[in-house]
Amino acid sequence: MLKAQVAVRLGNFDLDVAVEAAADEIVAVLGPNGAGKSTFLRALSGLVALDRGRIDLDDVVLEDASRGIRVPPERRPMGVVFQDYLLFPHLSAIENVAFGLRARGVTAREARDRAGSWLDRLGVGGHAEAKPRALSGGQAQRVALARALAIDPRVLLLDEPLAALDASARGTVRRDLRRHLASFAGVRIIVTHDPLEAVALADRLVILESGRIVQAGSPAEVTQRPRSRYVADLVGVNLFRGIATTGHLALPGGAVIHSADPVDGEIFATIHPRAVALHRSRPEGSPRNVWHGRASALDFQGDRVRVGVEGEMRIVAEVTPSAVSDLGLAEGGEVWVSVKATEISVYPA
């Protein structure tokens, strides 16, 4: 079990997060660029000193800022796969993998043997003598993984493991990576800005924004109940925050919508764009939530069009291209919006 309370200040940026990761799970730290993901990873591995907080691995204190304890990176039982892999360009693949063993005092011959078998296990044994620049992205990633695993770490940290690959290679490499991660019996933490990668590889997501954790949970929990604009955008839903009193949701800006959920107090509400209906004139009938707005942006996505509507509240609707022409929609054009109360999902903030 890795317990990390990490507070680091770098210039104007400050990171202050607490993350726990057990040996039987894969944790993905997901967040936009500049959220502090890499800093978090560097702090875990000891490359950046904590200003406050502590890092414990099982019953060993790796770092405790208040007591001045700090195990240097070379003595932490952590294997790191860096963004861009950072294979030493002057060493061959097998020398890269043997590096950590040699640094730990293993004899040259034994280090080479063990490095060779790691390369074999990861399916790149045929490239043992190749220099990193001669390897493809996928091969380099496997060598980097072998290098990190060869030192027999108790924690495996991966920084954007797929970002350096082109889209065509990503699918296969992701599958392989998943397999290799599954066979490693230790704490596994992946840092990524790619939600697809996070969901595909991790059992638990930690969402990091501007140096703070905004949400954590299983991929299903996080995607069903976004708690930040960042996650809502990733999932592609409209997210609102407000105060609920018996089905009345008061949003900042004065708008009030009605939901069928009986939650009270500070809430998040999500509305899927497909549940947002657009009309040329004020709709008749059942919908409780109807308002008037102005189409601000039309975004054609294949057989779907996302329409941003400015009004009492800003919302995105998803309609078909034929609906756009039926409605005579144009950017800046007037439009009526309706949402059924049952389509609004509400949960406590």
């Binding site: 560097r42 591995s45 000891g46 490359l47 240097p72 990176p73 070379e74 003595r75 932490r76 952590m78 294997g79 790191v80 860096f82 861009d84 950072l86 030493f88 360009p89 002057h90 590096f99 950590g100 640094a103 730990r104 290098r147 990190a148 030192i151």
Partner: peptide, 24 residues
């Protein structure tokens, strides 16, 4: 960052300098 990579692999500062920095 190559030096960082070497540190996480268990190399102390002198070894990092000799085996990574100097060759680079």
């Amino acid at each position: 960052r190559y030096e960082d990579a070497a540190r996480t692999l268990g190399a102390g500062r002198w070894l990092v300098f000799r085996r990574v920095t100097l060759p680079l």
